[in-house]
Simulated scan of single mutants.
Amino acid sequence: MSEAPELPSDEALAAEHAIGLLSAAERAQAERRMAVDPGFAAHVAAWEARLAPLLEEIDPVAPPVSVWPRIEARLAANDDTAMLRKRISFWRGAAAGSLGLAAASVAVAVMLATRPPTLIAPPEPAPLLNASLKGDAGITPLFVAAYDPDRKALIITSLVPPGSDPVHVHQLWLIPADGKPRSLGMVEPGRSRAMPMPGDMAPMIAEGATLAVSVEAPGGSTNPDGPTGPIAAKGALAKI
């Protein structure tokens, strides 16, 4: 039987942790390192993912009643020298017949050692939302908006010609599922504006929520609970 290729020290330690070959002190040290070293933690996770299918292929076998007494009798002999011998024998390979089921698992782990770690696909980005804000006639949008849930930023563009109503301002409102308007700020005619959403506001900007623009006196609505002036345009957010 040919010897398995040697692994880099970090990979070897990660595999030993995943298989359970470390002593209690070594395991505690490895887990402390996992908490501060993302690269090493990724190695351990990759080894656990590689070895997990083995558990599904092995039928459970009840051990003889004499096993536990024999293990308890030998616990005192589990010193560092014995652990070192155990780890050396693991990396050099073991005869399947001599170590039984444990050796079979180890042999498969050695064969997998040269394979690259399984890459975990990143999560899918949240879908973008957009809205066309139209007046009562509902023909041509007066404002268009887009929201990026990952960046928590809303971009609103006014299609109203600049200077068309110099004595009023346009105020943007979010009307989420609870029906209570929240002011998002002013929108200048003919301009675009990016609006980062605060943490408490971002969850409210969801599919089906309404964006509305009211016509207000300079300075905006004096009503803290909603618009003072009439609604010029509104539209619901939908997935792009």
Rank of each mutant, 00 (worst) to 15 (best):
M1H: 14
E6G: 10
S9W: 10
D10W: 04
E16M: 14
A18W: 06
G20W: 08
A24I: 14
R27V: 01
M34Y: 05
M34C: 13
V36T: 12
D37C: 04
P38N: 02
F40Y: 15
F40K: 00
P63E: 00
S66Q: 10
S66A: 15
V67S: 07
P69E: 09
L75E: 14
N78A: 13
D79V: 05
T81V: 11
A82K: 12
R87W: 11
R87Y: 10
F90Q: 00
W91L: 04
R92P: 03
A96I: 14
G97R: 09
L99D: 09
A102G: 10
A103G: 15
A107I: 15
V108K: 13
V108N: 05
A113F: 00
T114F: 03
T114M: 15
T114I: 14
L128T: 06
A131N: 03
L133Q: 00
K134E: 06
K134C: 05
G138V: 06
I139R: 12
T140R: 13
A145M: 04
A145W: 01
D148T: 08
P149I: 03
D150C: 06
I155K: 13
I156H: 00
I156R: 02
T157D: 09
S158R: 04
V160C: 03
S164I: 12
S164G: 08
V167N: 12
H168L: 07
Q171K: 01
L172R: 04
P176R: 03
D178Y: 02
M186I: 09
M186W: 00
E188R: 11
G190H: 01
R193Y: 07
A194G: 14
M195A: 10
G199F: 12
D200I: 07
M204T: 09
M204C: 11
G208T: 02
L211H: 02
A212T: 09
S214W: 03
E216V: 06
A217H: 08
G220C: 04
G229I: 04
A232M: 13
I240F: 12
